[in-house]
Amino acid sequence: MKPASFEYHRPTTLEEAVKALAEYAPQDGRILSGGQSLVPTMALRMAKPAHLIDINGVRELADIKVTEDALIIGAGVRHAAFHKPVVDGALGQLLSFVVRHIAHYPIRQRGTFCGSLAHADPSSEWCLVSATLDAEITATSVRGARSIAVTELIEWAMSTTLAEDEILTSVRLPLLPENTRFGFYEFSRRAGDYALAMSLVTYELADGVIAAPRVGIGGVEGVPRRIAEAEEVLLGQKPSPDLFRAAAEAVANAADPMSDLQASANYRRDLARTVVRRALERSLP
């Protein structure tokens, strides 16, 4: 289990990085960021890139920025950065709650938020967070930078719409209003495993009723996504066990679950119902 040979490039500026990628992408060049998914894939020789462009030395990608209405996470920001809230309010709390479910402590020291999105694993917590909160990403190449909605970025499991010369340089998550509540629930077989199913829900509570509901599921289908049918159930209603059950049922009906070694589609559908309801229950103070 030794990786195949590759040429190693270590740019120190974004400009160098996009140039290197433009040059080497046609020769099977790839970005190396946290490496926590790429390196094992290479060890198994399921990936044999001829060039790796290591962006760990690009300082301008290493920061988290907070603007008036958003959190901007650079490509070099590691999972562990979120162990403590990176911003006041619901979003910071949400991220610090979710991050503890990502793999294991040492993996979180290296793996990156943006790398998770670029990898597009169906069970990635950050993909779920990004889909649920309608994140936007910035893709940068020698041709310039463009902004892409996460829903447009992830095409299918492990597949994105990034052009081969584009680096996913940052993710923009909207800050959540003060009255936002969130709940997250994940079921996996062992601590740190990829989820068999998980759900993130957020909503605002105004005058006791639910506004702006977001119900996301991950690990269930090929791509984490919001389930509009469940959000409709919640909108304008008072939180209650019955309401949450109805929303969870809507998810189970709407989902088109995948099947793999660990879980059949049938089982995943039932799990989806459960994780959504439990995420909603956890959203109560």
């Binding site: 270590r10 490496g35 390196v39 060890a43 290591d54 562990a80 402590y105 040492p106 020291q109 290296r110």
Partner: peptide, 13 residues
Amino acid sequence: GKPVRSCLMFAVQ
């Protein structure tokens, strides 16, 4: 100072 998996990094890094 941080615990990492040394099988998931390249020595050049």
